[in-house]
């Protein structure tokens, strides 16, 4: 598990220290403060090989410029000047990117096949979903995904089929399948998150998976967000998956708190991190472990600045 994180000279961050990461982490902050960049930094760390790095550069950040006060960052990742340190358990490893050594502590066996799963804020294009789902069909993972979706949206989904043009869903007891689009964007988003969650399940019980979700609230009604957290807690603990999600919604934070408040065993495993430009003008992370969240809720203090 990634336990703490230091990022230097990466995208919007000259330097950012995250003193502690827990099993479930929700990064909150204003748009443009660097929440996605934080996920990308973790992703980059996981893409320890050159192929991964190239993939990252070509897939992401196309024409995407990050403004940070008087600094404008280019539309691709600046990896020449990259240095990152991370602690993963007691292990140590070294990562090289473009000849630059990335100091780190981590064991490659932590992530044997699935290095990570990264769900971005939008909805993936049909081809991606189609390819992904074809690797699930007729395996145990297919059942797990339908189970996860059914729990989140409260419909008993029996099967999902992805055709050339559309995604059809068969609800248990219903005569005919329906197009997933008719059930709303929330279901599409849930479908993607469910696939990523199932795919981040580590292959052995002594390993740990990693799931990154950008803007977890996208397309989801608050009642669904609560159920999504419930599922994320349940499976993250059961399967040993570290989750780092981002949000700029108070509601996503509240729903996370309510879920943890209802389950004492979750409380030590969760935290909210507010990413912000602090009073010193530098990026900083304010940690809200469960007790602090409880105090904020009790005193009706919002986690402001979202």
């Amino acid at each position: 598990m990634i336990e703490h994180l230091t990022i230097k000279n990466f995208l919007a961050f000259p330097e950012l220290e995250v003193p502690e990461l827990k099993l479930i982490n929700l990064v909150a902050g204003k748009n443009g403060v660097g929440k996605t960049a934080l996920l990308e930094a973790i992703q980059l760390y996981k893409c320890s090989d050159k192929i991964g790095t190239n993939r990252l550069i070509s897939e992401n950040r196309k024409g995407n410029i990050i403004h940070h006060k008087d600094r404008i960052f280019a539309s691709k990742l600046e990896i020449n000047n990259l240095s990152m340190t991370m602690a993963v358990g007691d292990y140590k490893s070294k990562v090289f990117i473009d000849g630059e050594q990335v100091e780190g502590h981590g064991h490659p066996d932590d992530y044997p096949n699935h290095e990570y799963e990264f769900i971005r804020s939008g909805i993936k294009e049909h081809d991606w979903i189609s390819r992904r789902w074809s690797s699930f069909v007729l395996t145990e993972k297919e059942e797990l995904v339908t189970e996860v979706i059914s729990k989140v949206i409260g419909l008993n989904i029996f099967r999902i089929a992805v055709t050339d043009q559309s995604i059809m869903v068969k609800i248990a007891g219903a005569k005919n399948p329906v197009n997933i689009k008719s059930l709303g964007d929330g279901l599409m988003r849930t479908f993607q998150i469910a696939m990523a969650l199932v795919d981040s399940k580590p292959l052995a019980s002594n390993l740990i998976g990693l799931l990154l979700i950008d803007e977890i609230e996208t397309h989801l009604h608050h009642s669904v967000i609560r159920k999504l957290w419930k599922i994320i807690f349940e499976y993250a603990i059961k399967w040993n998956i570290q989750v780092v999600a981002t949000t700029h919604s108070q509601d996503a934070i509240r729903q996370l708190f309510y879920e943890a408040a209802a389950n004492e065993s979750y409380q030590e495993k969760v935290q909210v991190l507010r990413l912000q430009i602090g009073r010193s003008g530098k990026h900083e992370v304010i940690e809200y472990p469960y007790e602090k969240l409880e105090f904020m809720m009790d005193t009706k203090l919002e986690i402001r600045g979202l």
Binding site: R279, L301, R304, G305
Partner: peptide, 14 residues
């Protein structure tokens, strides 16, 4: 609790 709340306010640069 006044002190805890003040700490929250200090940590929030807005």
């Amino acid at each position: 609790n006044v002190r805890k709340t003040l700490a929250q306010q200090i940590n929030d640069p807005t």
